[in-house]
Computed example of a mutant assay.
Amino acid sequence: MKFRIGVIYDKLQVQISDTEEEKCAYEQEIQTKEIISKILKDRYDVIEIEANRQIIQTLIKSKIDLAFPLCTGIRGESRQSQIPAILEMLQIPYIGSGILGHALALNKSAAKQIFDYNHILTPSFQIFYTSKERLNSDLRFPLIVKPSCEGSGFGIHKDNVVHNEDELILKIDNLLSEYRPPVLVEEFIEGRELTVGVIGNGNKKRILPIMEINFDNIPKEFGNFYTFEVKSKLSDKTKYICPAPISLKTRKIIEKNVNKAFDVLGCKDIARVDIRLKGDKPFVLEINSLPGLKPIYSDLPKMASKAGMSYEDLIFEIVETAIERITIGKIRKKIS
């Protein structure tokens, strides 16, 4: 009997998907799901599974050997962990990070505290639950204000970079009214934007060629950083330079920090780490434990291409990486 993989994708939640950000993310996920399913059918039996209210019954009936979750979840601060939690309850192996890894990566505030504790260089920061809290006097403007538990550029626009306390308070209030608290405030690093893809686990990680995201051709009204508008509308004007022109010494420092950041958050199989480089100092901003995989468009496939991998190679390597991790885990469990 052929090995069976279930590609799990989000159900469109009409009642909460009325923003441009939500619609854009959903369209990308559906397009990604369709092409991944088509590729995997060359080697495996593939079933597409919608993450709706009947998903537990659907998963039980599906008899899949491995799940390939593309789901960001519906809502809540740990929504990317919802499908992994169900899969673990049903004892279905799956690709990607576990419940805790996804929860920590999505929660930027928690992730930065873990980075700080583990001496991984990250911009100085403060966590706000209300705009009435006093700003730490050690923080220096400009600052960038972010929703703590969002990805895909949600809530990130040019006016997120603030230059005084009045702008700061206004932006905190705006984000708290639109997103779940807390709000993360960190020093805005005036430097180069880099991103780094990771495939693998433990000592067998593949660090993909580091990519620089250059905004020289982006109109100034959209900001000199990766805003939602830049990601979704201006990718044709953005310069994606891969491999990034950096020294060997800087590359090794970045790879060391990326490797460590991946491990301390408990990520598995695949992730993308975002960095700001100031001089030769790489500041880890965040980890995306569920990186976009849309061909041509998403950052991780761009980096994989520069590593000599076709898109098909990338998808099969992700699957094989997860299978190897799961198989080794089962062997160790039997031995113990």
Rank of each mutant, 00 (worst) to 15 (best):
N52D: 15
A51C: 04
P69M: 05
I49S: 08
K38N: 13
K38E: 13
F68D: 10
I56A: 11
K41L: 06
K41D: 00
F68N: 02
I47V: 15
C71T: 15
A51L: 05
F68E: 12
I64R: 00
L66Y: 04
L59Q: 06
I60F: 04
I36K: 04
A67V: 06
D65L: 03
I60C: 05
F68V: 07
E48S: 15
F68L: 11
I60R: 14
Y44E: 00
N52K: 04
S37W: 14
A51K: 04
I64A: 00
N52Y: 02
F68H: 10
E48T: 13
S62Y: 09
N52V: 01
E48F: 00
V46E: 05
C71W: 07
V46F: 08
K41C: 08
S37L: 14
L70S: 10
K63W: 03
I36R: 03
I55Q: 08
I35R: 12
L59D: 03
R53L: 07
L70V: 09
I47R: 01
Y44N: 02
F68G: 01
K38Y: 15
K38H: 11
K38R: 15
K41R: 13
C71R: 04
I39E: 07
I47L: 10
R53Y: 06
I49L: 13
K41W: 02
L66N: 02
T58H: 13
E48R: 00
P69F: 07
D65W: 09
I64G: 01
S37N: 12
I35S: 09
D45A: 04
Q54D: 14
L40D: 09
I64P: 03
R53P: 01
I36A: 10
I60G: 03
A51T: 03
S62G: 07
L70W: 12
K61M: 09
E48Y: 00
I56N: 03
Q54I: 00
L40M: 12
K63T: 04
I56L: 08
V46G: 00
K63H: 13
I36C: 11
T58I: 10
P69S: 05
Y44S: 11
L70R: 08
I55S: 06
I35N: 11
R53E: 11
I60H: 08
D42A: 07
L59N: 02
I64F: 04
E48W: 01
I56M: 08
I36L: 05
Y44W: 00
I39L: 14
E50N: 09
I60Y: 06
A51E: 05
T58C: 08
I39Y: 14
E48L: 04
E50I: 12
R53K: 12
A51H: 03
E50C: 14
D45I: 02
V46H: 02
A67I: 06
L40Q: 07
Q54E: 15
D65K: 04
L40P: 10
K41F: 03
I55N: 09
K38W: 05
L40W: 15
V46P: 08
R43Y: 14
F68P: 00
Y44K: 09
L66V: 02
R43G: 02
E48P: 00
K38D: 10
D65A: 08
F68W: 09
A51S: 11
L40V: 14
S37H: 13
A51Y: 02
R43L: 10
L59R: 09
D65Q: 07
A51P: 01
L70H: 12
